[in-house]
Each structure stands twice: as structure tokens, then as C-alpha cells.
Design a binder for these strands. Sequence first.
DNA 1: TCATAGCCTTTTTTT
DNA 2: AAGGCTATGA
Length: 763
Amino acid sequence: MGKVNYLDTLNAPQREAVTHAGGPLMIIAGAGSGKTRVLTYRIAWLIEQEVDPFNILALTFTNKAAGEMRQRIEAVIGNDAKNLWMGTFHSIFAKILRFEGKRLGYTSDFTIYDTDDSKSLLRSIIKEMNLDDKVYKVNFVLNRISSAKNALISWEAYTQNPIYIEEDKAAKMPELGRLYKTYVMRCFQANAMDFDDLLYNTNVLFRDHLDVLNKYQHKFKHVMVDEFQDTNVSQYLITRKLSAVHQNICIVGDDAQSIYAFRGANIQNILNFKADYPDLKVVKLEQNYRSTKTIVNAANSVIAKNKEQLEKTVFSENEEGSKINIIKATSDNEEGNLIASDIFEEKNNHGLKNTDFAILYRTNAQSRAFEEALRKRNIKYRLIGGLSFYQRKEIKDLLAYLRFTVNQSDIEAFKRIINLPKRGIGDTTVAKIVVTAAENNLRIWDVVSNIHQYVAGRVSSTIDDFATLIKSYGLMLEEGKDAHTVASYIAKSSGLTKELYEDKTVEGLSRYENVQELLNSIKQFVDNSESDDKSLSAFLQTVTLMTNADEDDDGDQDKVTLMTIHGAKGLEFKNVYIVGMEENLFPSQMMLARRSDLEEERRLFYVAITRAEKKLTLSYAESRYNYGRLNYCEPSRFLEEIDKEYLQVARNRFVSYSNMEDRNDQPAKQTRAVSGFVKKDSIKSNLKPVSKSTPPANHVPSGDFVASDTSILKEGDKVEHPKFGFGLVIKMDINGTDRKATIRFDTQGEKTLLLSFAKLRIL
DNA sequence: TCATAGCCTTTTTTT
DNA sequence: AAGGCTATGA
């Protein structure tokens, strides 16, 4: 690789950013302006200027972004790239806390609590404190605690602040401060940090231990932050402190793409950056190389309304490109079908590959209809986000065993595994152990391993057996057995895999395979992890901090991408579909309820639009399932906000934008539909609201019975229906995604049931 | 005291 | 749709 070659490929502002010698630098990078290239070249350039990679810290928001950047740097600079300190905020500071956590009273084996752990812990605290969980909602309380931590407000400060006390009293939640305190104490006692703690504690570490701060300040001669618009106060302070000595801070961001305020991101960080660094050098990258003029202009027309912005003009010199298509569907299933057929046609007509397509939605729950439609057409897809591999029950169960083996204070892991597989230890006993530990300031392990002192009776010997089991795992680790060996042994000897192995249902089989898959990934980690730390706790850390975007990657297969708009940040695709363009969905209901200005939702829309290189399609449905209920939907106001000149009057069966306006003349159909019962013979027109009262004879109850996966039902199956009794399936009609079964019931004669509503037990 | 069936509530995005 | 909660029976 020639030394200077790559500089020639850059435009003037890009080159200026790459070769900025030192001192604070802010790169305002519009969408598609070659930001990643600039960042990677800058790092490569610094290394050419004799800066040791070891002294460069580069912070990103996803592991994937970090990994890609490292690869690209390697391509320019070679093996040296390995020594860079590059990763997500959370993973880099988790690493530092593993080294330095002793100063704060944590061991180097501390557990990282994920959101489920945090919620579970909080739930039990609320219960213990005898608070009403209808008033103190777990999600709300956790959010409150999280915001406090991200703003660096300790529980001490929180409970002493008269403003918060008043606020909480007014909100009828005077105990929030105490909850915060208890939550923090419990985490500490469990030798655990939640996601926010990783940043919060880093701040505490740097504040209270100046020698540590000093060490890292001198180590990191250059600090770079990607996606700076998404940093919160806590992250901002860390980067400022770390760069205080050398003053070589380089931030890259785009205020127009700030979409993480909900988790504490503070757009002011980038808007006010100049105020913090008077001799700041600012470089603006405004030329978009990614998208057509139409797409760039349409995107600009969307955020033109936003008030809080840095001045910049993103423009494209690419071709004009085709206009933006709008598709109207009658239902969410039809939306899936229309998009899938469109992908099919586009592939045939323009010789595109699956990887050229992305379907972007506002919420993960929307993926279902698209998955079904794509599967039906044999189009391969990959789903990013949603319930990830590591959130599956069987995986979390085994991970909990591993966690408890590594960190025997980990209460949440303990609660998960103590009665799994069933040992006859119930909630009462577990609660007793947890409370005993908390009251006597002991580790969970201290209580469990001396259970006879605390709990009398039959259970105590069962718990003894459990303790012996865990002890044997700990011993294996001490003997230096590698993570994979220990994990496989745990899976087998705990009885977890045995239980799954004996479950011969389809789900049981896949659960068993998942566990094997997890063991494989541990093996991989042990065999060829890049880092030198191959301990079990290192593995657990990578798993917890893994982003949704990091999973999958089963080779470079040709697949359509399905993901949320949030997940799509930083990516690009030739053809993009933004689906579910409906009021209350996008913009989301929550946003509409909470804030009058929709600036962040609008920026989200902007991010979605600018993912497209060649062609953009927007779609919405007139009705949609939500929590098992069918609802009517209005087209999103965002459709109105795009400059009309960029919109396409769609062909043939697609409904044009002007037709959409006509729709507004009709009376609004706001009725909530299908609450409880649905007409069995109204497949296409099952949108009519049906009363909640007693069903007429031709209706089928839709309440819970034994849920069965309707896709496995076959002719000849014997079934039981909650109302009609036992029956035999004599005919199956499969029409698109709608499935009907004609069943002969012993007493009721033949009935045809729409399976999405009928709940049958297969006998 | 524990296990289970069925009822009830939830309501976005992610490290 | 899914996970927590509660009543019920063992």
C-alpha cells in the first residue's frame, strides 16, 4: 500500500480532517459523506506520523463499527492496527474497570447486569419494600435511575436534592430515592454493574483516583469519538477528562442523526462543543456520495422543520434517481406481501442481489409479516435485533450458571438457577436466602454454602447439594480448565441439557441446539479470540455487551436485511423500504404522548431515508395487529412532510399519494376492533369491529386456551377446542398467511375455524 | 410449600 | 405475544 495514495482519493475537507495535526477537532459529517473513511484514514495517518497505536483511543457505539474500522485500518497500515484501543464506550470502560475496579470495591470478576437482570432486581426490591408495583412501575423506576446515573447524580445527591424530593412527591412516588439507593447497594453487593454503571463508575474512578486518571490521560495521546451526537453527559465527561492533558480530541458526528435521547444522549454535547474548546477546529463534510439527488433532497426536506441544528448543507452530485414510491396496503400481512413481491420484481428487473435490500421499521414487532412473506417467496433474509440469541431463555439459563460460578455474589444469576432444573426450592426459600444475605451483609454464596445456619428443614439439604455442585465448578476453574471445558461440564452435570434433550418437540429440539451453539461459541472464543484474556468472565462480558448488530454473520450470505431504523445507523443499501409509515407507529405513540415536538422522530426518519443509495419506498397499512388486537391506522404525518415533488405516483396496484389524500374525506374509522371475538368467515374483511359481549353462534372465541402453533396442524390431527370439545381435523385450507381448518367435533358437527383466532390443543 | 393453569397487563428505539 | 401474577390443587 503506497504511503500517500489514499489521501488522493479524498476531497478537500476530508483531507483537512484526516491530516489535522493536533488539538481539538470536530468533524460534522453529513449522512453518506464518507465519515468512516475519514476516521479510519485519520487513524492510519496518525500511525504513519509515528503515533503508537497503543496510545490511540477510538470510541464507537457498536462493536461492529469498531471491528469494521479496525479491518479498514489494517488494510492501510497492517498489523499495527491490533494494538489500537478501539471499541464501544461500554466495552472499553468495562476493560478499564476490570483493571482498576478494586479501587471502588469491585473484584475483577464483576458481573455486568443486562436490562433483564436490572428489572428483576428492581422488581424484588419493590416487593420487599412493600410498594405498590402499579404505582412504582419497574420500567419507569429503572428509567429514572438510569437517567440519574447518566447525568452523574449519585443516590446520595438524589435523596438530598429538595427538587427531586418534591417532584417525586408530586408524582406520588416519594420512595424513588430510596429505591435508587437500595438498587445501587444491591448491585454493589452482588459485585455487579449495570450498563450505566460502567460509565458512571468510570467517572467516579477518574474523579476519586487521580493517579488512575493520570495514567490513562497520559496513555491516550489521541482520543476519537464516533457518533458523538449520541453521547450522554457521563460519556462526554469521560472523553473530556481523558483528553485534558494532550488536548487531542477528535469528535465525529452529525446532529441531524441524533436519535438516542431516550437513553440519555444529549444533543447539546455536539451543539455546544465549540464553547468547551475555544481553539476548536471545525471541518464540515457536506457532500453526500451515497444517495441520489432525489433521496438527499427529500431527506433534507424532512428535517428542514427542526429548530436545533448546526448549520450545514448536505448535497449530492449523483444522478437525479427515481422518485420515492409510496405503497398502501390494507393490512400488515398485505404490506409484507407487497414489499416482498416488489423485492422479487426489482431483483429480476435490475439484476440486484438480496444484500442490496433493507426493510426498516420503527419497532421490532413489525418484522413478523415481512419474515413470512419473504419465506413464502424463498427470499433469504437476516433479522437483526428483536429477541436475540443471547436473550433466549435456555441461553440465559446456562449463562446464569456460568455467571454464578464466576461471581458467587451474583444474586440475579442465583435466582435464575437455584430451582433449575426443578429441585423443589420455591420462592419462599429463595426470598429467605436473598433477604438473609442482604440483612447480614453477606454474599449470596456465604448463605448458600452454610445453609444449615440459616434455613432449617428438608430444603436445606437440597441447597447443600446445589452448593456442592457450584463448588465443583469453581474448582475446575481454579485448576485452570478452559472456559469451554467448564461450560460443557456445567451444561451436562447441572441437568440443563438433559432436560432439553428429553423434550422432543420442535421447540425443545431448537432449544437444545441453541445450547450446543452457545457451547460452540465459547469454544471459538477460547480458540481464536483476539484478546489475550480467554477467561470465562471475559467471555461473559463480551456476551453481555454484544450489540444486536454484532450477531449473525454466518458467512457473507446473500440476504435481505430486516431491522429497526435505530439498528440501521451507519449502514447503506441500494434499495430501502421504510415500512409502517403510520401515525402512532412512526412517529411512535409514546413520543406523541410525551412531547409536542417530534424533532427526534423526524431525525429518525432522516436517518432511515439516508440509508438508501438508489431507491426508496415507503409503505403503510390501513390495519395492523397490536398485542393480538386488530387496529385501524392512519397514514403518518411524516408522509405529508416530505416535499411532494420527490414522491412517486405508484403504478398499477400500488395506490398513489393523491388517492391517499382522498382517503381523508372519509369519516375516520377509529374503532378498536376484534376485542375477544372475530367473525370466522370474514378473512379478508375481518376488520369490522365486533362486540365484546357473548359471541353469536358463528363466532369463535379468541381468548387464551392452550396456544398451539397453527402451522403444525395437519389433516388427521385430533384436537381439543375450549368450547366445542374434541374433534378431528378433516381439511386444511391455506390461503396466503390465513389458515383455516375444518374440524369435525363430536357433539357440534363440522366447523371451519380460522386458525389465527382459534386456540386448539393438539392431542 | 410448591407447581401449574389460566388470567391480566403491557404498549419504542439499545449499550 | 409474552411474561408476570394469582388462585387452586397436591
